[in-house]
Design a protein around this nucleic acid. Structure first.
Lengths: 234, 234
DNA sequence: TGTACATCAGTGAACGCGCGTTCACTGATGTAC
DNA sequence: TGTACATCAGTGAACGCGCGTTCACTGATGTAC
């Protein structure tokens, strides 16, 4: 068995290939000069084509950027799903918990971010005022959050009933279908904001010259997230 | 006494005034379309001047942007200093600690960020690949960090001796002149990354549609930062 | 107070550039009989 | 297998635009005697 049949016509396959190559050059351009410097004409030149040729493949510059954003989200969602699927805890003398490992997710996130910082910033960086992502991208973001929620739900202790968790009790539209208690939602949000806090400052270079190893700060935050906390004072 | 003498000549005062007006329009443009869309010609048009006139006031577009970045840093540093100077703890039946109040700093940071999100992102948002801030801006960043360190040093408990603090023991170039123990440095860094994590995701709109109140998540993180923690497990 | 000069703000024309995008067209590839 | 037609990739010219930046110049403001 040499592989599944490719139902696509040669033309379709060629189209897909050129589209992929355009995107590849687009990412290189973004990595070099930032997303705002992305230029269709420059990409065409790099590919040895004339500018208007690209309009066979993308309706407009905005269209291309939106697709890059979508691909970035999709890439992170897939990375999360793959990590969640293969990295269950409970194997090596652990505390007996089962399910998705939140530590593995954290390292997957960090790896994904370091792999291409500008891709990370295209998702989580400075927003362009007025831009609204289409619905299908929002759906991918929700998918990412769902994977994270599953992992947090699998943590040994459900976490303390924080005041913010009480607020979430009545404000959990984003997770209304998830069975996890609100304390777990709080944990997931905290996981997200804390790791993003370290990662985005690190990738933006705000730690350079300070001397310490950002990976260890990341690890410290992760350790803290895994540790059950006291009840909040008062 | 109607005020101190203004040693500046009328021409100098005029210059300063026009420069300020240029910056004002620049900020409006950034708020509307992001920093990458900033255009000298557009600013001149808004001011009813011709484009080249602005070159009397700024050497180049990059020069203007650098100055906006500097002003943003300066603004945050001043806000922090003012907050630290006027908001000592220990007044209202507190636990007896004295010195700068970290809670006040946190709220000052949040207020400053919400006041002008694009200004926040100009400081902490997506970096432009290849751009390096001049030294005097780095110095302002250090000033901000110093104020934060002072506040963390004034917290009731010095915090536990975390593993990361042990690493900082030998990697605290950025705070080699500060008397605070490394555990306090760890606290300051955590303060920074956690609050930035919540703020940047909030300002970028990643919480919109989720239903909860970002202010309460921010408050929850702040509460957690103020609470002394257990020793790390193991 | 008045005159001569220097300083400086602002203009308008111009340069060169690269951008996104449209359009009519050529030539190659695939499809139908 | 060959022919007629439809589909589609890619080109080159062109449009209009706005950008940053320079330059020589005008006119107003300030300074020195």
């Amino acid at each position: 068995m040499t592989g599944a049949e490719d139902a696509r016509t040669p033309r379709e396959r060629y189209r897909a290939q050129v589209r992929a190559e355009v995107k590849k050059h687009a990412w290189e351009q973004i990595a070099t000069a930032g997303a705002s410097a992305l230029s269709l004409n420059a990409i065409a030149k790099q590919m040895g084509m004339s500018g208007p040729a690209l309009y066979r493949y993308f309706a407009s510059r905005d269209d291309l950027i939106t697709e890059l954003v979508r691909d970035a989200y999709r890439s992170l969602a897939d990375t999360f799903r793959a990590t969640a699927g293969s990295a269950q805890t409970g194997g090596a003398g652990d505390t007996g918990e089962t399910g998705v490992d939140v530590t593995a997710l954290a390292h997957a996130l960090r790896g994904w971010a370091l792999d291409d910082p500008q891709r990370y910033f295209l998702v989580y960086g400075t927003p362009v005022p007025g831009y609204h992502a289409p619905d299908d991208i929002t759906a991918i973001a929700a998918e990412i959050m769902a994977t994270l929620l599953d992992a947090c739900a699998a943590l040994p202790s459900p976490g303390p009933a924080t005041r913010f968790a009480a607020h979430l009790e009545d404000h959990r539209q984003w997770a209304r279908d998830h069975p996890a208690p609100s304390a777990t939602l709080h944990r997931a949000l905290t996981f997200w904001t804390r790791l993003h806090g370290v990662l985005s400052l690190e990738l933006a270079g705000h730690f350079t010259g300070m001397g310490f190893d950002p990976a260890l700060l990341f690890a410290a935050e992760l350790d803290d997230l895994r540790r059950p906390h006291d009840e909040p004072t008062e």
